[in-house]
Write a protein that binds this DNA or RNA. Structure first.
Lengths: 133, 133
DNA sequence: TTCTGTACTTAGAATAAGTCTAAGTTGCGA
DNA sequence: TCGCAACTTAGACTTATTCTAAGTACAGAA
């Protein structure tokens, strides 16, 4: 049941331990953008043994390093994690703090008019607004 | 000499005390994007009396609230402050962490193709790359 | 001028996010 | 089975920021 997660980890060079598999599975299975603490809360109930915060942080950092997930920095003072590693941007609901993925093709290609010494690797658009229901 | 700073604070509804004037003057006079701690380091030598970190944070928050400066969130775990409140984006040098302002007109107007329930207030582009010298 | 109240500042304690450390486990290969 | 390297744990530590309680400054009333 978690075998495709184990494969995902393995193909990215991350040894699939029980803790890592459950953390990765949780991230892949949500389109919220949880903080480390939210990951810890959600995952610790699912493991038969106790889970250390250090393991959560180590795992999240390892997954970021390996390219399995991305860090999202929107609010000051907290990092969120996103298992959507396709090219995309973020919409932040300023009322709730909720973060939504915005597919890159929904943002028209950006033209930048920078001085030649600025060499661009990538860019990221953060859109602020409200989601009306 | 600091009178235009005092005026700036007053017109934004911030009572210009000695500490606030020196903090605001420092921010207006730099195009680095200092952290609260960098502000504290730089400013505490310029004041005849001792300066508390709490005052730095209170002042920075008051200035943000009043619209005199903006928060910049690029790295996790630290907030930077920017006295450039005109419409602009940021270029982050991934090697040095240095942040440069990019005038809004250097970024071609963005077209967003979002579902109608997403109501956009503003957007911000963070460009990652390197500055070659 | 003195009194008084409000707003400001201070030092240091408290909190929160994240990292480090030392010790205990696990599990693979010889 | 043994040894070793990698993993995990609890809790201490660090760093950024906020809170708190006490002290200070200063404008307006008496």
């Amino acid at each position: 049941m978690t075998s495709h997660i184990e494969e995902l980890l393995t193909t990215h060079g991350v040894k699939p331990t029980a803790q890592r598999a459950v953390i990765a599975e949780y991230l892949v299975g949500t389109d919220c953008h949880p903080t480390a603490d939210e990951v810890f809360q959600a995952v610790s109930t699912k493991l038969p043994v106790s889970l250390s915060r250090a393991t959560v942080y180590n795992t999240l950092n390892a997954l970021v390093e390996a390219g399995v997930i991305k860090e999202v920095v929107t609010d000051p003072g907290r990092v969120r994690y996103d298992a959507n590693v396709s090219d995309h941007h973020h919409f932040v609901d300023v009322k709730t703090g909720q973060v939504y993925d915005v597919d890159a093709h929904k943002v028209s290609a950006l033209k930048l008019d920078l001085a030649p010494e600025f060499s661009v690797n990538s860019y990221h658009v953060t859109i602020f607004g409200e989601v009306k229901k």
